[in-house]
């Protein structure tokens, strides 16, 4: 049995894997003490799997906090882990992975042998990521999933020009002041992210199958938005939030 822990910027996820299948998982907010949280999710996950920590033959960490967990045997980057997971879950085919996380958005190309050929990642700030949508949801007085559901009821999505949280927030505030419907603003925000991701996708091979993982895959309407703009079919991986942790465990 192996454990994969994905210590992300917002959430820490842990899965226990046996014979390349997830048998248990746990998740908690990373918070200010990610090392303690990593320990906690590991204990939680092994409890729900009904095993002792000593039964784990390998613990692999990934994500932003991958270097801080001292019990880890190996660390790999979240890019390699996402590639491993997507390649495995998509039936060992070459694919393009979209990973929308808390602090970064990645597009990764994997070839038919499961190797990372190329990847793009937002380079400096968290513009256009899960955190961005979270902040905007705050302004619209809902949460990130509420924002997605709200966007489904839009009648006429507005055009949001910026994916910078600071500028977009002022745009949203002024749209609200102009009596624009919340639903239309929510749809505009999702469109802004979706078109950013579609631009990143356009740098890669257009024939590959596209899979979607990370917490962002759970936001209603985001997948459809990307599909519409990029004109490609996207498949959401099962348990998208745990996919990277799973990739780490099977590496």
């Amino acid at each position: 049995m192996k454990a994969g822990i994905d210590i992300g910027s917002v959430m820490t996820k842990c899965v226990i894997v046996e014979n390349e299948r997830i048998i248990a998982g746990a998740m908690a907010k990373s918070g200010a003490m990610p090392e303690k949280i990593a320990e906690k999710v590991l204990v939680d996950a092994s409890k729900s799997a009904g095993i002792e920590l000593s039964q784990l033959e390998k613990i692999v960490t990934t994500g932003y906090g991958r270097h801080i967990f001292s019990k880890a045997h190996i660390t790999i980057t979240e890019i390699s882990a996402a590639a491993k997971a997507a390649f495995h879950l998509s039936g060992k085919k070459n694919c393009l992975i979209i990973d929308v996380g808390g602090q970064d958005t990645k597009v990764i190309e994997v070839d038919k042998s499961g190797e990372v050929v190329d990847f793009l990642m937002n380079d400096k700030c968290a513009a256009g990521t899960g955190r961005f949508l979270e902040m905007m949801a705050d302004v619209l007085e809902t949460d990130i999933y509420g924002l997605g559901e709200m966007s489904m009821q839009a009648t006429r999505p507005v055009l949001i020009n910026s994916t910078c949280s600071v500028f977009a927030e002022s745009e949203v505030v002024s749209l609200l002041a102009h009596n624009e419907k919340k639903e239309n603003i929510a749809a505009g925000l999702l469109n802004a992210i979706a078109s950013r991701i579609a631009t990143m996708m356009s740098h890669f091979n257009k024939e590959n199958m596209v899979v979607f993982c990370g917490g962002g895959a759970k936001i209603p309407g985001l997948k459809e938005g990307i599909e519409k703009i990029s004109n490609r079919k996207i498949q959401v991986l099962e348990n998208p939030q745990f996919a990277v942790a799973f990739g780490a465990a099977i590496s």
Binding site: I79, S80, V116, M121, D123, K124
Partner: peptide, 26 residues
């Protein structure tokens, strides 16, 4: 790697270069 003279993107740069190394190692 797109960057400037500031140091605030060091962490993200490191993640990308580590992934690049893993890509070469594989």
């Amino acid at each position: 790697i797109k960057t400037d003279l500031g140091k605030e993107d060091t962490g993200q740069m490191k993640t990308r270069l580590e992934a690049f190394r893993e890509m070469i190692d594989l």
